[in-house]
Design a protein around this nucleic acid. Structure first.
Length: 110
DNA sequence: CTCTTGACTGAGG
DNA sequence: GCCTCAGCCAAGA
């Protein structure tokens, strides 16, 4: 039993761990890096399973820079709080200067 | 096996 | 620029 899907999840976690401090990325960017651009939802799905792991899911948002997954964190503003703690400006679940703090895994795997 | 849901994205109006 | 629809893949009931 060694389906690539299993690796897919593991890869998602590893990419998330590679996200530098004060930076964020999108599900699509991770999916694209994994070669599964159509699997952006799967990235989020993997993130759901990433709970309890060393995966900084709070640094992963959708392409709009919106904290779509904040509801999956404890409390109501934990995700935003974590991001702001890293210097990321967040307002109303939306990251400010998103493209400025955006981190592309494909650009970092260099 | 079929249907529904989901931390998404792109295209069209 | 915002809203809506459709496509995509995987897991759970």
């Amino acid at each position: 039993m060694k389906p690539e899907t299993l690796n897919f999840f593991e890869r998602v976690y590893e990419v998330a761990r590679q996200i530098p401090y004060g930076r964020v990325t999108s599900y699509g960017a991770i999916a694209l890096y994994l070669g599964a651009e159509r699997g952006a939802r799967m990235v989020g799905y993997a993130m759901n399973n990433a709970h309890g792991k060393d995966v900084p899911a709070h640094r992963v948002v959708n392409r709009k820079g919106l904290l779509t997954g904040k509801h999956h964190f404890e409390g109501t503003n934990l995700m935003q709080q974590l991001l702001e703690s890293e210097g990321v400006e967040v307002v109303e679940n939306q990251i400010q200067n998103f493209e400025s703090v955006f981190w592309n895994p494909s650009d970092a795997l260099f």
